[in-house]
């Protein structure tokens, strides 16, 4: 159920993201989705990629601070209220979302949302989502999106 996202620590200055993308391009890694969280001084670049292990190895070799993070990717009905139904299922169990970002897949009509929960509650979140009839993508599904 859980899939691996690559999280990279970056200084907040020009050219840093381009440098990371150059490393990944050099390792022939395909990026499926991307999100950036930033503050005045630093940021965290979060990526869904086709081969997370290879991406991490390439980034570490290039001396970045990069770690794997377990996230959930959920299919969202592409209709009004689609995302709301998912968040309702989580909030009714009092499960706090650490962060989330959405993207649209190529091969499906549906939107996809990546959720990050703190470690202790991620398993509760999986239960709550499945109980609400929401489908969670496995690692193989992510490769094809």
């Amino acid at each position: 159920m859980k899939i691996t996202q690559v999280s990279i620590f970056l200084e907040n200055r020009s050219g840093r993201i381009a440098d990371v993308l150059a490393v990944l391009a050099g390792a022939n890694i395909n990026i499926r989705a991307l999100s950036l969280a930033d503050t005045q001084d630093f940021g965290i670049l979060r990526l869904m990629v086709d081969r997370p292990d290879d991406a991490l190895a390439a980034l570490k070799a290039a001396r970045y601070t990069a770690i794997p993070t377990a996230v959930l990717a959920v299919e969202v009905p592409d209709a009004p209220g689609g995302l709301h139904s998912i968040l309702s299922a989580l909030s009714s169990h009092n499960l706090n979302v650490e962060y989330m970002y959405a993207f649209v897949g190529r091969k499906t009509e549906k939107a996809l949302v990546v959720f990050r929960f703190d470690d202790p509650i991620v398993d509760d979140a999986i239960k709550a989502l499945l109980a609400a009839g929401i489908s969670i993508l496995g690692p193989d599904a992510v490769k094809d999106i």
Binding site: F9, T39, F42, I44, R46, T65, I67, E98, R116
Partner: peptide, 15 residues
């Protein structure tokens, strides 16, 4: 310098 040990994927952790 931040190392892998201290990096937790959370902005609030880094702050």
């Amino acid at each position: 310098e931040v190392t892998e040990q201290s990096f937790t994927d959370h902005i609030k952790g880094l702050e």
